[in-house]
Write a protein that binds this DNA or RNA. Structure first.
Length: 197
DNA sequence: CCCTGATTCGC
DNA sequence: GCGAATCAGG
């Protein structure tokens, strides 16, 4: 593979979007993250600043003076780093159904919820639940696109609204979830088996 | 261990 | 110019 204009363009785009070198490499295909990084450097955009943005690093120079703003590039598009929730668009307070072709639709419950059901106060170890609650505060709130092989894919929030994201915490094992979520995801199904219900 | 970007240097 | 190997972190 070679760095065609298109590929370089995509590289620039993704890099400025804050994508990691490995992700870019994966997207491009035929190159490794090293190649991407090498190219990035050669292109001179090692700093992820499409034109100027980063808060920059406050040098040990505590100069109370006003910061000099170079008018060098006043009209820079400046690609703000947006979380880019991937799938869901920035939902507006629009309660209306977008357009459900179904003649008779019931609740807006997405039938295809491939991922584990939210723990419904079942017979799950309270400690594990507490842990999840705790962990979800630290969730990285990844969008569908941000998920990788080793990020927790536990869904959080309501898929029907914009309040939906994935845990995203590292799932170091070969598991699809982080430690906490693994805990409530698959219980050995042995914890209290004879509930003599 | 997983990951990140940065650098080097033979090609 | 290219990128694998390596380095230096998190």
């Amino acid at each position: 593979m070679s760095w065609t204009d298109e590929r370089v363009e995509l590289l620039k785009k993704m890099w400025s979007e804050g994508q990691s070198a490995s992700q870019i490499a994966k997207e491009l295909g035929g190159v490794t993250r090293n190649a991407v990084i090498g190219k990035v450097h050669r292109l001179g955009l090692s700093n992820r600043a499409g034109g100027a943005a980063e808060p920059a690093k406050p040098e040990p120079k505590a100069k109370p003076e006003k910061v000099e703003t170079k008018p060098a590039r006043p009209a820079e598009p400046k690609v703000e780093e947006k979380p880019a929730p991937a799938a869901a668009a920035t939902a507006k307070p629009e309660p209306a159904q977008p357009a459900t072709p179904s003649p008779a639709r019931r609740a807006i419950i997405p039938a295809g919820q491939p991922l584990p059901p939210q723990p419904s106060a079942n017979e799950i170890d309270p400690a594990a639940l507490a842990k999840v609650g705790e962990v979800e505060k630290h969730a990285k709130k990844l969008g569908l696109m941000e998920l990788t092989e080793r990020t927790c894919k536990w869904p959080i929030g309501d898929p029907a609204t914009e309040d939906f994201w994935f845990c995203g915490l590292p799932s170091q094992s070969g598991k699809p979830y982080c430690e906490a979520h693994v805990g409530v995801a698959f219980q050995p199904m042995s914890s209290r088996r004879d509930r003599r219900r």
